[in-house]
Simulated scan of single mutants.
Amino acid sequence: MGLITGLLTLPLAPVRGVVWVAEQVEEQVDREMNDPAVLRQKIDDAERAFERGEIDEAERDARQEEALDRMTGRDRRGGGG
């Protein structure tokens, strides 16, 4: 980037910084949401909640299926396939 370009785009620096931070947050959230250990914990939590009577069988199955879909890289909510 040249000196003139740098000076002319200087007012956009805060915007570029915010965009960079947002991208970093998005990447971290994606890593955490698709971490097999976290997904396995969600499956176990759903089973325990069902056993305690906090959720019904349909809710347990839905939660577990969502976690399994994430583990295998599938997303049934999108409708395309």
Rank of each mutant, 00 (worst) to 15 (best):
A58K: 09
T9Q: 12
V29L: 15
E23R: 15
R74V: 02
G53I: 00
R40I: 06
G79Y: 07
D69R: 08
L8C: 12
L12R: 09
R76V: 10
R52Y: 02
E51H: 04
W20M: 12
D69S: 04
K42G: 10
A62P: 04
D56K: 08
G6Q: 07
E54D: 15
V38R: 06
P36M: 12
L7M: 08
P14I: 01
N34M: 05
A22L: 15
L10F: 10
V21N: 06
L68E: 14
A13Y: 00
E51P: 00
G53R: 09
A49S: 14
L3K: 05
V29D: 01
P14C: 03
A67T: 02
D56W: 05
V15G: 08
E26Q: 12
G81K: 07
G80P: 01
N34G: 10
V18D: 03
L39G: 01
R40K: 15
L7A: 13
V18H: 04
R74E: 11
A37T: 13
D30V: 08
F50S: 13
Q41P: 01
V38S: 03
V19W: 02
L39C: 03
G17E: 07
D61V: 05
V21T: 11
V21L: 14
T9Y: 06
R52I: 04
I43D: 04
D56Q: 06
R70G: 01
I43G: 08
G79M: 07
M1S: 12
V18Q: 11
R76M: 06
A67H: 02
L10W: 03
T9L: 14
M33Q: 11
P14Y: 00
R48L: 11
A46G: 13
E65G: 09
L39V: 08
D69M: 09
R31Q: 12
L39H: 01
E26V: 03
E66R: 13
L7F: 11
L3E: 14
F50G: 06
G81T: 00
E59N: 12
E65F: 01
N34W: 02
V18W: 01
R60C: 02
A37G: 14
V29H: 08
L7Q: 04
P36I: 10
A58L: 12
D45Q: 13
I55P: 04
R76E: 06
R40T: 09
V15R: 05
D44F: 05
L7H: 04
W20K: 11
R77L: 14
R16E: 01
